Amino acid sequence: MRVLLVEDDALIADAIEVTLRREGFHVDWVADGLSAEEALASSAFDLVLLDLGLPGQDGITLLRWLRGQGGHNAQGKQIPVIILTAREAVENRIEGLDLGADDYMVKPFDMQELMARARAMIRRANGRAVPALEIGDIILDPAARTLRKDNTLIDLPPLAFQVLQVLLERRGRVVSKDDLAQVLYGWDDGAESNTVEVYISQIRRRLGTDLIRTIRGIGYVIDQ
Protein backbone atom coordinates (compact mmCIF):
# COMPACT_ATOMS: atom_id res chain seq x y z
CA MET A 1 0.00 0.00 0.00
CA ARG A 2 1.32 3.42 -0.95
CA VAL A 3 1.38 6.24 1.61
CA LEU A 4 2.13 9.94 1.13
CA LEU A 5 3.79 11.32 4.26
CA VAL A 6 3.62 15.12 4.49
CA GLU A 7 5.87 16.16 7.39
CA ASP A 8 8.48 18.93 7.65
CA ASP A 9 10.33 17.52 10.68
CA ALA A 10 12.94 15.16 9.22
CA LEU A 11 13.44 13.19 12.44
CA ILE A 12 9.72 12.50 12.85
CA ALA A 13 9.35 11.72 9.15
CA ASP A 14 12.25 9.26 9.27
CA ALA A 15 10.80 7.44 12.30
CA ILE A 16 7.37 7.16 10.65
CA GLU A 17 8.85 6.07 7.32
CA VAL A 18 10.98 3.33 8.90
CA THR A 19 8.00 1.97 10.83
CA LEU A 20 5.67 2.08 7.82
CA ARG A 21 8.19 0.30 5.60
CA ARG A 22 8.69 -2.37 8.25
CA GLU A 23 4.92 -2.92 8.20
CA GLY A 24 4.93 -3.39 4.43
CA PHE A 25 3.87 0.09 3.27
CA HIS A 26 5.63 2.02 0.52
CA VAL A 27 6.24 5.61 1.62
CA ASP A 28 6.78 8.77 -0.41
CA TRP A 29 7.84 11.68 1.82
CA VAL A 30 7.49 15.41 1.11
CA ALA A 31 8.25 18.25 3.52
CA ASP A 32 5.87 20.99 2.40
CA GLY A 33 2.31 21.52 1.25
CA LEU A 34 3.07 22.57 -2.32
CA SER A 35 5.17 19.44 -2.96
CA ALA A 36 2.35 17.37 -1.49
CA GLU A 37 -0.17 19.00 -3.80
CA GLU A 38 2.09 18.19 -6.77
CA ALA A 39 2.41 14.56 -5.64
CA LEU A 40 -1.34 14.14 -5.14
CA ALA A 41 -2.08 15.66 -8.53
CA SER A 42 0.26 13.26 -10.33
CA SER A 43 0.14 9.97 -8.39
CA ALA A 44 -2.39 7.69 -6.69
CA PHE A 45 -2.00 7.00 -2.96
CA ASP A 46 -3.84 4.71 -0.54
CA LEU A 47 -3.39 7.05 2.44
CA VAL A 48 -2.12 10.53 3.33
CA LEU A 49 -0.45 11.25 6.68
CA LEU A 50 -0.63 15.02 7.01
CA ASP A 51 1.11 17.42 9.37
CA LEU A 52 -0.67 20.78 9.78
CA GLY A 53 2.27 23.10 10.46
CA LEU A 54 3.93 22.96 7.05
CA PRO A 55 6.09 25.58 5.32
CA GLY A 56 4.82 27.28 2.18
CA GLN A 57 1.30 25.92 2.32
CA ASP A 58 -0.10 24.62 5.60
CA GLY A 59 -1.87 21.30 6.07
CA ILE A 60 -5.35 22.79 6.39
CA THR A 61 -4.99 24.57 3.04
CA LEU A 62 -3.74 21.34 1.45
CA LEU A 63 -6.61 19.35 2.93
CA ARG A 64 -9.13 21.91 1.68
CA TRP A 65 -7.60 21.66 -1.81
CA LEU A 66 -7.56 17.86 -1.74
CA ARG A 67 -11.20 17.51 -0.73
CA GLY A 68 -12.25 20.34 -3.03
CA GLN A 69 -10.76 18.75 -6.11
CA GLY A 70 -11.96 15.27 -5.12
CA GLY A 71 -8.65 13.46 -4.67
CA HIS A 72 -9.06 9.72 -5.23
CA ASN A 73 -6.91 6.64 -4.89
CA ALA A 74 -6.18 4.09 -7.63
CA GLN A 75 -9.58 2.47 -6.99
CA GLY A 76 -11.39 5.73 -7.68
CA LYS A 77 -12.29 6.15 -4.00
CA GLN A 78 -11.57 9.13 -1.76
CA ILE A 79 -8.07 9.04 -0.29
CA PRO A 80 -8.21 8.69 3.50
CA VAL A 81 -6.28 11.35 5.45
CA ILE A 82 -4.89 11.08 8.97
CA ILE A 83 -3.77 14.40 10.48
CA LEU A 84 -0.59 14.25 12.56
CA THR A 85 0.05 17.44 14.47
CA ALA A 86 1.36 19.06 17.65
CA ARG A 87 -1.68 21.35 17.76
CA GLU A 88 -3.71 20.08 20.70
CA ALA A 89 -6.53 22.63 20.68
CA VAL A 90 -9.96 21.10 20.12
CA GLU A 91 -10.80 23.72 17.49
CA ASN A 92 -7.85 22.51 15.36
CA ARG A 93 -9.17 18.97 15.46
CA ILE A 94 -12.69 20.11 14.63
CA GLU A 95 -11.48 22.19 11.68
CA GLY A 96 -9.45 19.30 10.25
CA LEU A 97 -12.25 16.77 10.64
CA ASP A 98 -14.84 19.16 9.23
CA LEU A 99 -12.67 19.73 6.17
CA GLY A 100 -12.60 16.01 5.44
CA ALA A 101 -9.83 14.41 7.48
CA ASP A 102 -10.68 10.85 8.50
CA ASP A 103 -8.68 10.71 11.71
CA TYR A 104 -6.51 12.87 13.95
CA MET A 105 -3.45 12.06 16.09
CA VAL A 106 -1.64 14.51 18.37
CA LYS A 107 2.16 14.32 18.63
CA PRO A 108 3.80 12.54 20.28
CA PHE A 109 1.88 9.39 19.39
CA ASP A 110 2.49 5.65 19.59
CA MET A 111 3.79 4.26 16.30
CA GLN A 112 1.91 1.00 16.58
CA GLU A 113 -1.34 2.89 17.12
CA LEU A 114 -0.57 4.90 13.99
CA MET A 115 0.00 1.66 12.05
CA ALA A 116 -3.31 0.23 13.29
CA ARG A 117 -5.18 3.40 12.32
CA ALA A 118 -3.48 3.46 8.91
CA ARG A 119 -4.54 -0.14 8.22
CA ALA A 120 -8.08 0.63 9.37
CA MET A 121 -8.34 3.69 7.10
CA ILE A 122 -7.16 1.74 4.05
CA ARG A 123 -9.46 -1.15 4.90
CA ARG A 124 -12.50 1.12 5.15
CA ALA A 125 -11.56 2.94 1.94
CA ASN A 126 -11.68 -0.42 0.20
CA GLY A 127 -15.05 -1.31 1.73
CA ARG A 128 -13.81 -4.01 4.10
CA ALA A 129 -14.91 -4.40 7.71
CA VAL A 130 -12.47 -7.18 8.63
CA PRO A 131 -8.67 -7.09 8.44
CA ALA A 132 -8.06 -10.33 6.54
CA LEU A 133 -8.28 -10.71 2.77
CA GLU A 134 -9.67 -14.10 1.75
CA ILE A 135 -10.23 -16.01 -1.45
CA GLY A 136 -11.05 -19.70 -1.27
CA ASP A 137 -8.62 -21.37 1.14
CA ILE A 138 -6.16 -18.46 0.97
CA ILE A 139 -6.09 -15.90 3.81
CA LEU A 140 -3.79 -12.86 3.82
CA ASP A 141 -3.62 -10.82 7.03
CA PRO A 142 -2.06 -7.38 6.39
CA ALA A 143 -1.74 -6.57 10.10
CA ALA A 144 0.01 -9.79 11.09
CA ARG A 145 1.87 -9.94 7.76
CA THR A 146 0.88 -13.60 7.38
CA LEU A 147 -0.34 -15.68 4.46
CA ARG A 148 -2.10 -19.03 4.85
CA LYS A 149 -3.31 -21.65 2.39
CA ASP A 150 -5.32 -24.60 3.70
CA ASN A 151 -4.50 -23.18 7.16
CA THR A 152 -0.77 -23.66 6.48
CA LEU A 153 1.58 -20.68 6.76
CA ILE A 154 3.10 -19.73 3.41
CA ASP A 155 6.42 -17.91 3.26
CA LEU A 156 6.26 -15.19 0.62
CA PRO A 157 8.98 -12.55 0.01
CA PRO A 158 7.94 -9.08 1.27
CA LEU A 159 7.48 -7.43 -2.14
CA ALA A 160 5.60 -10.42 -3.52
CA PHE A 161 3.39 -10.20 -0.42
CA GLN A 162 2.67 -6.54 -1.28
CA VAL A 163 1.78 -7.43 -4.88
CA LEU A 164 -0.63 -10.11 -3.67
CA GLN A 165 -2.18 -7.73 -1.15
CA VAL A 166 -2.77 -5.09 -3.84
CA LEU A 167 -4.37 -7.62 -6.19
CA LEU A 168 -6.61 -8.94 -3.40
CA GLU A 169 -7.57 -5.39 -2.34
CA ARG A 170 -8.55 -4.68 -5.98
CA ARG A 171 -10.09 -8.08 -6.60
CA GLY A 172 -12.11 -8.21 -9.79
CA ARG A 173 -10.25 -5.22 -11.29
CA VAL A 174 -7.29 -5.40 -13.64
CA VAL A 175 -4.16 -3.83 -12.12
CA SER A 176 -1.52 -2.67 -14.58
CA LYS A 177 2.17 -3.45 -14.18
CA ASP A 178 2.82 0.28 -13.88
CA ASP A 179 0.33 0.59 -11.00
CA LEU A 180 1.95 -2.34 -9.20
CA ALA A 181 5.40 -0.83 -9.73
CA GLN A 182 4.16 2.51 -8.32
CA VAL A 183 2.88 0.76 -5.19
CA LEU A 184 6.18 -1.07 -4.75
CA TYR A 185 8.66 1.63 -5.65
CA GLY A 186 6.85 4.98 -5.83
CA TRP A 187 9.27 7.61 -7.11
CA ASP A 188 12.32 5.40 -6.57
CA ASP A 189 14.51 4.71 -9.57
CA GLY A 190 16.28 1.53 -10.55
CA ALA A 191 13.46 -1.01 -10.67
CA GLU A 192 14.06 -3.66 -13.33
CA SER A 193 11.36 -3.89 -16.00
CA ASN A 194 10.64 -7.53 -15.16
CA THR A 195 10.44 -7.23 -11.36
CA VAL A 196 6.63 -7.34 -11.25
CA GLU A 197 6.66 -10.57 -13.30
CA VAL A 198 9.17 -12.03 -10.85
CA TYR A 199 6.84 -11.37 -7.90
CA ILE A 200 3.82 -12.73 -9.78
CA SER A 201 5.83 -15.88 -10.51
CA GLN A 202 6.75 -16.24 -6.81
CA ILE A 203 3.08 -15.98 -5.83
CA ARG A 204 2.02 -18.54 -8.43
CA ARG A 205 4.69 -21.04 -7.35
CA ARG A 206 3.39 -20.95 -3.79
CA LEU A 207 -0.36 -20.54 -4.31
CA GLY A 208 -1.07 -22.04 -7.73
CA THR A 209 -1.01 -20.79 -11.29
CA ASP A 210 -4.77 -20.21 -11.54
CA LEU A 211 -5.02 -17.58 -8.75
CA ILE A 212 -3.78 -14.60 -10.81
CA ARG A 213 -4.89 -14.14 -14.40
CA THR A 214 -2.64 -12.27 -16.83
CA ILE A 215 -4.32 -9.78 -19.15
CA ARG A 216 -1.70 -9.66 -21.89
CA GLY A 217 -0.29 -6.20 -22.51
CA ILE A 218 -2.33 -4.69 -19.64
CA GLY A 219 -1.73 -6.28 -16.26
CA TYR A 220 -3.08 -8.81 -13.77
CA VAL A 221 -6.34 -9.63 -12.03
CA ILE A 222 -7.64 -11.91 -9.29
CA ASP A 223 -11.17 -12.70 -10.34
CA GLN A 224 -14.17 -12.41 -8.03
Rank of each mutant, 00 (worst) to 15 (best):
V3L: 14
V3T: 15
L4T: 03
L4E: 00
V6I: 15
D8T: 06
D8G: 05
L11M: 13
L11V: 14
A13T: 05
A13N: 09
D14W: 08
A15H: 11
I16C: 08
E17D: 13
E17Y: 05
V18D: 07
E23K: 04
H26D: 08
V27W: 09
V27N: 03
V27E: 02
G33K: 00
S35L: 13
A39H: 09
A41H: 04
S43C: 13
A44T: 07
L47P: 01
L50C: 06
L50V: 11
G53A: 12
P55D: 05
P55L: 04
P55R: 03
G56T: 06
G56K: 07
Q57A: 06
I60K: 11
T61F: 03
T61M: 05
R64W: 08
G68F: 11
H72R: 15
N73Q: 06
A74C: 05
Q75D: 15
I83V: 15
L84K: 01
L84C: 11
T85F: 08
A86N: 14
R87Y: 08
E91W: 14
E91K: 12
L99F: 07
L99A: 12
D102M: 09
V106T: 13
V106E: 07
F109M: 14
F109D: 03
F109C: 02
M111F: 15
Q112D: 15
E113I: 14
A118S: 15
A120V: 07
R128H: 12
R128L: 05
P131M: 12
E134L: 02
G136M: 10
D137G: 11
A143M: 09
T146M: 07
D155K: 10
P157I: 00
L159P: 01
A160P: 02
Q165R: 15
V166S: 01
L167H: 01
L167Y: 03
E169V: 06
E169A: 02
R170A: 14
R171N: 03
G172Y: 04
R173P: 00
V174P: 10
V174A: 12
S176K: 06
K177W: 00
W187G: 09
G190T: 04
N194R: 13
V198N: 05
S201Q: 14
Q202S: 06
I203A: 04
R204H: 10
R205E: 15
R206P: 01
G208R: 05
T209V: 14
R213I: 06
G219F: 03
